[in-house]
Amino acid sequence: MFKIMQYSFFDLMRSRWSYSYFGFFFLFTSALLWLSGDIAKVVISLLNVILILCPLIATMFGVMYYYNSREFTELLLAQPVKRIAIFWGQFLGLGFSLSLSLLLGIGIPFLAYGLLASMEIWHFSILLFNGVVLSFIFAGLSFLIALRYENRIRGFGLAILVWLFFAVLYDGFFLLLVMHFREYPLEKVALAATLLNPIDLSRILVLLQLDVSALMGYTGAVLQRFFGSGLGSILTLTSLVVWTTLPLLAIRWVAERKDF
């Protein structure tokens, strides 16, 4: 698995897409830093970009990478290796290459601007950590969808729909639910609903650390009231770990039953 991961990583790191992804974050972060001049504000600005863009790019990369390497995967499947080693290896290679583009794209401008001398290093680390976790979760989900659906158009469409659902539609449905049942106590429902969306979880994890309640929204406020920042952070972190693990297990389940 490690070897396959290593080669998938090198293959992806040399692709134009990885350079573009790195380039975007590098330019965007540099522009924000030098225009605003306040590291704390830039961390919050970047939060929303990371919450939307990391899952989207990971989704697109995941589907594209699986379909592009389909024939090569067949060659690997004919080798004396376990099936799951191939797919987990490719998935991890994908996750790490996305993470490296993100870390370098955002990290270099921050370091150049003087992050180490500022008080924001913890918040900055939390932000990057969330970007990495979201990349892995959505790369896993899209890899799973591509593995499940041979038809590329259907696979691509469904993967984008999953991203759209979690990034945009989920909050809308959630608001409708809250409005419709506003007569009832909804705290626990809201809490459960938050745990079911990795993007919301990430947002809350960062905001709990940043302690900017104005940006937290309804679910974040509920979470903080229920658990306080410490326990809330542990709960969200655990949920994110579960979200990262689930696609891996599902990839295993599908891969072991699939015909290639």
Binding site: Y7, S8, F10, D11, L12, R14, S15, N68, S69, R70, E71, F72, E74, L75, A78
Partner: peptide, 14 residues
């Protein structure tokens, strides 16, 4: 077993 698949497609950047 040595196997030659029908379609030769490899990771493009390797």
């Amino acid at each position: 077993i040595d196997y030659l698949p029908q379609i030769a497609r490899f990771p493009e950047n390797l």
